[in-house]
Amino acid sequence: MPTPLPSTSISEVSDSKTIALQMEKVSVYYGSNLAVKDVYLEIPEHEIVAFIGPSGCGKSTILRCFNRMNDLIPSARVDGRILFDGEEITGKRVDPVELRRRVGMVFQKPNPFPKSIYDNITFGARINGYQGNYDELVERSLRGAALWDEVKDKLQESGLGLSGGQQQRLCIARAIAIEPEVILMDEPCSALDPISTIKVEELMHELKERYTIVIVTHNMQQASRVSDRTAFFNAVATDQGGKMGYLVEYNHTQDIFSNPKEEYTRDYVSGRFG
């Protein structure tokens, strides 16, 4: 296993798009264990960026830095600078509750609330003091998540009664209902069947018009199908017997898959490990 490379040079985005999210020398610790080290990353607006890499490489951990979900883990600590629209989002002065309204998230396992489909959508709007018409919000969000036609006649039924793929699209609808700027997706299709997966992937292409999307995926084909850029993370074993993740390479998806600069990336995308 190699020592992690200083990844500054390879993670910069060279073209002149507006940057939505930016990481500078971000490290995440769980207790005294260094989980991810020194990540530099720039995510442009209205693009889909995929995080790939083997288990334990810290890609989900890094994703959860963007909406500060790591705050909920008492032992977690995040070092470095994270910028959203040019403003720092780490530190005590930034309210994670406010941040999370602007940076939505969809999880690995569909997690609709045990409430009606309607209430699932309006939950975020209610707690964030939405003043508009809730019926319109529900329809707009469900249409946005390509779920409206399937559920329009049963909005008062429980969200838990839907199929897995529908539940995940309900969670996407719930996320876009609060009109975020960024949607983080943590392996959103890993619990879904292939047909549901394709539906979610098609949906992502539509969502890209309005939102910046960061997706963690185990599925390299998925990364190559949906994303504009891909970040490849790897993990090295640490002295304490744990794993430490680091960013190996970040580039346009096409380059990562057809012309990777790093040997580890080439080995991973060609299926030699991981």
Partner: peptide
């Protein structure tokens, strides 16, 4: 987590 992620 789902609730927190919606800004609750």
């Amino acid at each position: 987590d789902g609730a927190y992620a919606l800004g609750a």
